[in-house]
Design a binder for these strands. Sequence first.
DNA 1: GTTCCGCATGAATCGATAG
DNA 2: ACTATCGATTCATGCGGAA
Lengths: 286, 286
Amino acid sequence: MEISNNLILGDCGEELKNIDDNSIDLIFTSPPYADARKKTYGGIQPDKYVEWFLPKSKEMLRVLKPTGTFVLNIKERVSNGERHTYVLELILKMREQGWLWTEEFIWHKKNSYPGKWPNRFRDSWERLLQFNKEKKFNMYQEEVMVPMGDWAKNRLRNLSKTDQTRDESRVQSGFGKNISNWLNRDMAYPTNVIHMATECGNRNHSAVFPEALPEWFIKLFTKEEDYVLDPFMGSGTTIKVAQRMRRNSIGIEIDESYFDMVYKQTAPAELFLLDKGKQYATSQHR
Amino acid sequence: MEISNNLILGDCGEELKNIDDNSIDLIFTSPPYADARKKTYGGIQPDKYVEWFLPKSKEMLRVLKPTGTFVLNIKERVSNGERHTYVLELILKMREQGWLWTEEFIWHKKNSYPGKWPNRFRDSWERLLQFNKEKKFNMYQEEVMVPMGDWAKNRLRNLSKTDQTRDESRVQSGFGKNISNWLNRDMAYPTNVIHMATECGNRNHSAVFPEALPEWFIKLFTKEEDYVLDPFMGSGTTIKVAQRMRRNSIGIEIDESYFDMVYKQTAPAELFLLDKGKQYATSQHR
DNA sequence: GTTCCGCATGAATCGATAG
DNA sequence: ACTATCGATTCATGCGGAA
């Protein structure tokens, strides 16, 4: 089966109109936050954010399948000493558009931006708002199961301290393999709090979220050959992960340099054939 | 200096009116959630929650000192497959009342309520909404500093393995003191995500939150002899912690059996004298 | 092949300074 | 007075070079 990767240069408010009704299984996106990324985006004023976003979310509602899910990564900025309320207002307005506000996941960023202020600590979480079109939607919970609670830690604690310290390599080699076998038998469902560090800027492409974040939601809400859309593609993290996971993907980006970067980085089919031994289609670019 | 502990039986909407303007340093409370605790609070309907709460928050605004803080522990319930929006609406309405929505802390509940649903994971976080009266408020950040990241681990790793394993008692006695000195110099400020397990319900009164939660905010926003108010006292966790920390406290509770329980459990002054060797006043009950 | 240390780098926020 | 820009603050992370 061919997997397509469709990259579109343009404003998603316009480009979304060319996408069919009820054709997308998962929309995962992180729109530019108000006043952030000024250089690449226009730097939307916090007070204008809702009216800027609503026409786009209306189109997203149209293109999403009834069984599909929209996951919106967003966080309000501090404005004049207060958290701005545009995200709250956005949720209320999107419900009026017809969206169901199913859940709010928390992304806990362990390595948040440093800094010190007299009246505030560092902000180390972001919202992952889950919206749906219908009450019944596709969710594949088993795909994101995790090793159970403190199980591993407890087992390790029971080993003598000497064993732990004297030969650390054990844990990473043969001994570790045993552990991972046991782990498979003791998996639990995750919660709505996701712990993930942001990727550090040492690599060239500094993405705003780590690949593991879209990967988690793609696993949870789609299966292979489903359609994933990111209307604010940016550095293309969501799209690249979707392609790697054999999901059809559509990415829209208004900034040409971002678009070109993703276009170049999108792996040609040959690489996938070598890496995975599976058959992939050549990426479709426009 | 005498520390008072004032317990009031009644509806906080009424009883708050007897409290002086600008007299409270910290309001920390967890109001009955919509539809929860039906027996004691009549089970406020989600759709009526905001209008039920607003008159009370108006009085809280009046009694809070300009330098004071209101921390509201709340989480919206699932209603008809969606997260209900009453918390969002409450924030917007409270801002119209004059409150500043300074920050939203996340309480990550490590051991959240178990359960499995087809379209939803376990809910393991709650909101801790920080409201203020003025942009400038009292905040004692140093009081809640935490050991810095992997610093301790790295330093410990540098010690010879033998020292770590051969004589553990060292770490806990003289040797340990050196370490804790270093730690004091290498503390970091916390973030706005608070990791805390809920207390297991072994004790009779199943408290809504662990003592460490109000303790953290009492440390952060008050000093000794300041005034702490909990208008929805419930099992009295906030009040008991405040008293232990030498803060004056006022607790209001509408349910008589809750009230009686806290009244009986509030430690008499003699116990505190023995425990701490400091002078405490006899608790004032009304 | 390891492990270790040094270093640059952020979806940030405040307060002061400048227009 | 109100907005725009800038410096100072701070810490988890992962890369590269060194031992």
